[in-house]
Design a binder for these strands. Sequence first.
DNA 1: TTTTGAGTTGTTCGA
DNA 2: GTCGAACAACTCAAA
Length: 472
Amino acid sequence: MSSQASTIWWVRRDLRLSDNPALVAAAAQGAVLPVFILDAETQDLGAAAKWRLGLGLAEFSEILAARGSRLILRLGPALDVIRDLIAQTGAQSVHWGRLYNPQSNARDQAVKAALKAEGIAAVSHPGHLLHEPWQVETGSGGFYRVYTPFWNAVRGRDIAPCLPAPQTLSSPLVWPVSDRLADWNMGQAMNRGAAVVQGHVAVGAARAQARLQQFLAGAVGTYKTARDFPSQPATSRLSENLTYGEIGPREIWHAGFAAMQGGQAGAEHFLKELVWREFSYHLLHHTPQIATRNWRPEWDSFPWAGDGPKAEAWRQGRTGVPFVDAGMREMYVTGTMHNRARMIVGSYLTKHLLTDWRIGQQWFAECLIDWDPAANALGWQWVAGCGPDAAPYFRVFNPETQAEKFDANAAYRRRFIAEIAPRPGHDALAFFDAVPRAWRLYPTAPYPKPLIGLADGRAAALAAYAARDRTA
DNA sequence: TTTTGAGTTGTTCGA
DNA sequence: GTCGAACAACTCAAA
């Protein structure tokens, strides 16, 4: 096989060698030319995600180099870059792992059509999900809108075994020139936060595998209940790595399944959470508008508040409600937020402050290193009440009740809020190092008074929701 | 076509 | 403090 006609592996959110169908397909044809393209879709990432992607790319470059390969970095529209590489190398085919958000779909379809018209084999592969979103159907051929039936439909399915990493990665005869990652400045928008969040990331496939093994050797046992308590290290924290494909969902599924069969309590619940990710992509595929518009159109007339001082206080972790502020500060300091805190801050923004869920979604996109378009679309619409599983309108999280139930000793709140901690620790103080100077926040300033009374906020939300029901 | 049972994650009140 | 009921009505999936 001539190594001259190398095959392009378009690397996207699959920074791994193991269980990577696109890579395996490319490697089967001979020499592989891995390329990552910084195009508009990638440029549009939020500050934290873009920064974290840069860390992932740096790590992955080293992994490829250790295998005698390289990661070629190129800036520009994907099609232009791929055409240029084809012209330089004589590549005859391009392989990539599918993404499922509308922007990526549109881009990929255009790339595929153009390349095929030019006689190039352009092949997309699964790998980001356990199940292609169109391969899960209800009995009548539709798509699922409710989680439990979705889970029941996929829980018993056989998942193909993981693909081993290719034993060798053959190099093209000549490597095309690559941009320098440092020149891309992917951390530029992170401001002072990067130095703080850096202490909380786990970059790369090896660390992802370690996280999985550690979780399955320990916390999975109590996962079902302990996962609700944000001060406890009870979760796998794999969302960060899944986002960039440093681990594949299939690897997690098989490991979790084995743990379940080994009698590990909590393993099934863990698998269900993994399938929630699948469900969110299922919905994003079938109703792409879920990412931008009220999933239930009858909500379009709801008088959401726009951006303003209240939303800004929410973003800054200064609502005066400790559980809410702890969550917001956790996100700023660590780049992630505990699942329960996500629900609480979301409920507070959309219900107590009656603010448009998209304002929260946008801030999460800016701050989360595990930003996922599908999971966040579903999550935000769920918590706002305008999405699938229309929550009963009275499901308004009370942050104080939640704190009593899930943070009774205040460990979580004190960990992240310096103003209420007797002796503020590293993470609480780090928040003030991470935030933009323009916010003018200092740990010695008094903790803010509540923006709004919780009972008043709840009553206002219920009244607004009832009004919507009358007019809808 | 109709029917039936169920729906991630909550809160509050009163016994 | 604990527990069950009420909080509406609707949508969804499958029989």
